[in-house]
């Protein structure tokens, strides 16, 4: 009975990591798919979301306000970055790589200047447990999963069921033809970059109670979400789901069975084997 309980808990633990990983990776995948930009500052956008919660706390607003404001703040910041930097580097992958890498350093330094170099404590919006099939599980984690699933569902809806999503998918496949069909591609790039940034910011804000808030913390999630995107297959939103489930559940379940270091290495090896046999990813054509 005890064993069953901790297995269920472990499954939920994996599901939490999976849903957060997918939320972060979707932004990365959309920006890459639509604009061809590999955003090395995506992890810092995540961190900016977390610091929005900290800033709200400093301003004596509740953590809920911070979570609600984070996608707006980080989305606007993303828009600024698009207009100020990315716009000048369309279709120059190497330059965008360098520029976003430089941007990540600038953001970290700015965070250090504004919030200090140290770890910041964050307010916890929702402590307590819920009962799941007779076992207790932190209520905030359940909330976290629910929000991630909802936002991911909305993102899919926008992509596959709205005019905006149709335009984005058209640009992904043939940007010249899209503009010849009266799609304002540079405005779409702007919205896409802002949207991807907002999703990273939301993920960061949601995760503040569960992570170390420091200027350097972005890289933990950036590396994994790159993994998710590559494993799932570039250019397919569904691939992000598959990649996220493989990376997140595998890591969590394995680290329950074997040592964490071996588990993380095993996930890497399994991913490399998958990519060896499916170079375009699990869902790539």
């Amino acid at each position: 009975m005890l064993e069953l309980g901790s297995l269920l808990t472990q499954f939920l633990n994996g599901a939490t990591l999976v849903s957060v990983l997918i939320l972060i990776s979707i932004g990365l995948a959309i920006i890459f798919g639509v604009m061809g930009v590999i955003n090395l500052a995506h992890g810092e956008f995540f961190i900016l979301g977390a610091y929005t919660v900290i800033a709200a706390d400093v301003l004596r607003l509740s953590a809920w306000w911070g979570i609600a404001l984070a996608p707006v703040v980080v989305g606007l910041f993303g828009a600024l970055v698009e207009v100020g930097i990315i716009r000048f580097l369309y279709r120059r992958p190497l330059e965008t790589l360098l520029a976003t890498w430089g941007l990540s350093i600038v953001i970290r330094q700015l965070v250090r200047i504004v919030f200090g170099v140290g770890y910041r404590a964050s307010p916890h919006p929702l402590l307590g447990d819920v009962r799941v099939f007779g076992f207790t599980y932190p209520i905030y984690r359940v909330f976290l999963m629910a929000v991630c699933v909802a936002v991911i569902a909305i993102t899919f809806y926008v992509f596959y069921r709205t005019d905006f999503g149709l335009k984005i998918r058209a640009i992904t496949q043939d940007v010249e033809m899209a503009s010849a069909l009266a799609i304002n591609t540079s405005r779409m790039y702007l919205s896409t970059f802002a949207l991807g940034s907002a999703l990273a910011g939301l993920a960061g804000a949601l995760m503040t109670p569960e992570i170390t808030v420091s200027p350097e913390a972005g890289v933990n999630f950036l590396a994994r979400s790159f993994f998710v995107v590559i494993l799932g297959g570039i250019g397919q939103l569904a691939g992000v789901l598959g990649g996220g489930i493989v990376v997140g559940e595998l890591e969590t379940l394995l680290s329950y069975l074997i040592s964490a270091t071996t588990a993380q290495a095993a996930v890497l090896v399994i991913a490399i084997i998958i990519i060896r046999f499916r170079p375009r990813g699990l869902f790539g054509g």
């Binding site: 998918r169 058209a170 043939d174 503009s179």
Partner: peptide, 23 residues
């Protein structure tokens, strides 16, 4: 810009079709 030209009422059907294959 291209999108404004198109919006004025010019429809371009390029060589090699250029339909969106995954739409």
């Amino acid at each position: 810009p291209t999108y404004e030209i198109a919006a004025l009422g010019i429809s371009y059907v390029p060589q090699g079709k250029h339909i969106f294959p995954r739409l």
